[in-house]
Design a protein around this nucleic acid. Structure first.
Lengths: 247, 247
DNA sequence: CGCCTACTTGACTTACTTCAAAAACAGTGG
DNA sequence: CCACTGTTTTTGAAGTAAGTCAAGTAGGCG
């Protein structure tokens, strides 16, 4: 019944072998569930975090606020992710968190986490590992937004999200939920909304993918991967199940 | 005498209060020193890391290799930094490391680190904290390279490096070592080398800073900070000593 | 039906890239 | 000390990709 705990366990198990004692420790954590509206901000830049967040369902984004009120989206998080383990040791959030589509998250008190880390250091290491994976994704975003042309940049983002969705078992057939607007895509990839639209149109025309009604549809994975110059090594998946095979 | 250990202790102490036992644990670590030529690569993308690196002197960079053989620089590291604590839980490096100017680094076996973490969990947490600080710097780089115009982008980078150099006590007067070429600056900020030069010329003309003979000179900190839209919150320094005061 | 938001498209402008060449500089060897 | 080579920096001119501006269409909802 406690879906949240199981979601966390599944996600950590992707990268780390957890002992029975770790599982017990995790199951003993107090989670406070909260349902979120689409585009609802639930942690703000400047907040002093006292809780960590676990994505129980839906998609969650991190963003920087810009001078003019605009946003720079930094990363997206799927079911099972701990989007602000980043905030564990930090006095003031340097970025905010918002839901993309409808989502639900669980709040976990930092205090409890630290106690659990002390009792089961291997649990701490597993969470640490997650934060390092996050960092690898950040690094790739730097390269993506700085060094790749617009089309590849966008294709790469979709590759990453699809690949990660697959690992989190959120892909059904060749599609997964992706409730992101063009404006948000622009604020993620550093391009103007008009360009977003034109670039997306190109990708559609290439026949590699489609994005419709909040769903990402991958029609030809290898083509999309090629267009996006995507190689998943940086995601450090244990089992290298790639969406190949489906053309 | 063991400069490397003291450098690490000083850096960790910036953010975390270490107990005597932690210090003892750190001092017991085996460091293998290595001197590096300017621009020498010492960890390559694809390597299987068995050691962590500590910057003992000089400046070190992380980079992604691009398809065409080019590079995207991801971050720079100063004396005291642990540039690849990121590699602690990772089977294959997703990025490489190189010296900028002449530098020296110490290698620490992962095995020893993990043993030390077990014996002194607070030491592990301190290193974890460092990796989260790194991640915050990555996030800012995403925003910098995606959302800021060229001049601000460059100014912001110099602000960050100067600010960090100051915290690491590497600033003398209003200058610090910065052995970086225009080409590398371009590969950091995602701009063509011609643009780098013209943008740098603008910044010089503004009178806020200069970059000469591998040295960064900050003439008017507040102006540079304004030009770069820089606010240091994301660096999460405990003591908020800013370079202000010197105009 | 009308309003609001999200998406689409077109025409214009510009900031940046590319290309090219010159000037400054560092290292090497006579 | 100076010529010779290679690299880095500087500057100019031309081309282009992407931003901006603006208007129009489509979709969702009270």
């Amino acid at each position: 019944m406690d879906k949240a705990h199981e979601v966390l366990i599944r996600n950590l198990s992707e990268h780390t072998a957890l002992a029975e004692e770790d599982l017990a420790e995790i199951r003993a954590l107090t989670f406070t569930l909260r349902d979120l509206e689409p585009n609802q901000d639930f942690i703000r830049q400047g907040d002093e975090p006292k809780h960590s967040v676990l994505v129980v369902s839906g998609m969650v984004a991190r963003y920087h606020l810009l001078g003019g009120g605009g946003r720079q989206y930094l990363a997206f998080h799927l079911t099972g992710d701990l989007p602000d383990a980043q905030g564990l040791f930090i006095d003031q959030m340097d970025h905010g968190l918002s839901a993309l589509g409808p989502a639900s998250v669980a709040f976990i008190p930092h205090r409890e986490l630290f106690i659990a880390f002390r009792r089961r250091p291997s649990f701490g290491l597993a969470v640490w590992r997650e934060t390092l994976l996050d960092a690898a994704i950040f690094r790739e975003a730097i390269t993506n937004n700085s060094a790749r042309p617009m089309q590849a940049r966008m294709a790469h983002l979709f590759c990453e999200l699809f690949y990660r969705a697959r690992a989190a078992q959120l892909v059904r057939g060749n599609r997964c939920r992706m409730p992101i607007s063009l404006a948000q895509l622009g604020e993620t990839l550093g391009m103007a909304i008009a360009t977003v639209n034109r670039t997306l149109a190109e990708l559609r025309r290439s026949g590699a993918m489609d994005l419709r009604e909040g769903e990402l549809i991958v029609l030809r994975w290898r083509d999309l991967q090629r267009l996006g110059d995507f190689s998943p090594a940086y995601l450090h998946q244990k089992r290298q199940s790639s969406p190949e095979g489906r053309r």
